[in-house]
């Protein structure tokens, strides 16, 4: 049985990675299992300078999911490259490291792309879809012209495969995906969180101090699968599919819709072993259906 997937020229042991913002920099979950058992991790969103994040509460539970408004709290790119990355690379030989970057300005993104080029990060995931920050973030990801410009300029400075993470909070996600592809993106990842809100009817206050936040978890899965399918039908670059994956069956669904890699996010909070169990779940599915190579699943949906 082959579970290896070549994604943008990088060989992943299996198609399962973890979602940025749900897995820190890997330390915490590496206490529960060996990260070499999963394909890779996408680290907490990094900004050029350290960032404090939003005022709490930053999380609200909703039906079958959560809302978050962390606001990209992180120690800054340099800190990651100096402290966290060497730890991950020393401790894990197979697990691929995806650096997720977010900026306030175009210049931030370009500078981060340049700095990462000198590191041993495996891929860059460019977050132009964070709904929780006032400047940058999703503002870059909702206009095809902006997506094109930012992708093109970062690509010029960055020698790592560049994956653009797309926002679902748009009218036509395929148009955004095509703009990223045309501008030179090596891959796409989707979906980021859906903008949502929850109000405490007794206090009449939103639960989140930010009032609104990004929704994730099992409840968003059908929207995510649909978007992966739509994007896969419109581009020729590979996709990391995510949104509410709980197990191997969910992962297979995303692959059938067109994802080459799948990402486990919110489910890590429910079960620390969620990502590694997803690997086993995919293997069980392959055995049950007599599938020799996991790559056979990618885009293999038979639409009516």
């Amino acid at each position: 049985m082959n579970t290896k997937v070549n994604f943008c020229g990088v060989e992943f042991e299996n198609p399962v990675v973890t979602g940025s913002g749900t897995f820190g920099f890997g330390y915490e979950y590496s206490q529960y299992y060996n990260l070499d058992e999963i394909g890779g991790i996408s680290v907490k969103g990094l900004t050029l300078k350290p960032r404090e994040g939003n005022k709490p509460p930053r999380i609200a539970e909703v039906y079958g999911g959560i809302l978050n408004s962390v606001g990209l709290q992180n120690p800054g790119l340099e800190n990651f490259l100096v402290n966290d990355l060497p730890f991950l690379k020393k401790k894990f030989s197979k697990c691929k490291i995806i650096a997720n970057i977010a900026g306030n300005t175009l210049e931030d993104y370009i500078e981060m792309g340049r700095l990462i080029s000198q590191s041993n990060v495996d891929l860059v995931e460019m977050n132009i879809s964070c709904p929780n920050v006032k400047h940058g973030g999703v503002a870059f990801g909702t206009d095809p012209c902006m997506v094109s410009e930012i992708t093109c300029k970062v690509k010029e400075q960055c020698n790592k495969p560049l994956v653009v993470k797309l926002s679902p909070n748009v009218t036509d996600i395929a148009a955004i995906a095509k703009a990223a592809e045309a501008a030179g993106a090596d891959g796409l990842s989707l979906i980021n969180t859906l903008l949502g809100m929850k109000i405490d009817i007794n206090s009449r206050r939103p639960i989140l101090n930010n009032n609104v936040g990004g929704m994730s978890g099992p409840a968003v899965k059908p929207v995510a699968v649909r978007m992966v399918w739509q994007v896969a039908n419109n581009v020729n670059i590979p996709i990391i599919g995510m949104g509410g994956i709980q197990d191997g069956n969910d992962a297979v669904e995303f692959m059938l819709a067109g994802a080459s890699l799948v990402s486990v996010g919110t489910q890590n909070f429910v079960d620390p072993y969620a990502a590694v169990k997803t690997v086993y779940g995919i293997e069980e599915y392959m055995t049950k259906h007599g599938i020799e190579d996991v790559n056979e699943l990618i885009g293999a949906v038979k639409p009516w």
Partner: peptide, 22 residues
């Protein structure tokens, strides 16, 4: 006390303002 996510330090949700930040 704060509304919590992962519980193990990975998600940065349950923060408290201190002298060193959140």
């Amino acid at each position: 006390e704060q509304r919590m996510g992962c519980g193990i330090g990975a998600c940065l949700v349950c923060v408290c303002k201190t002298k060193s930040g959140y």
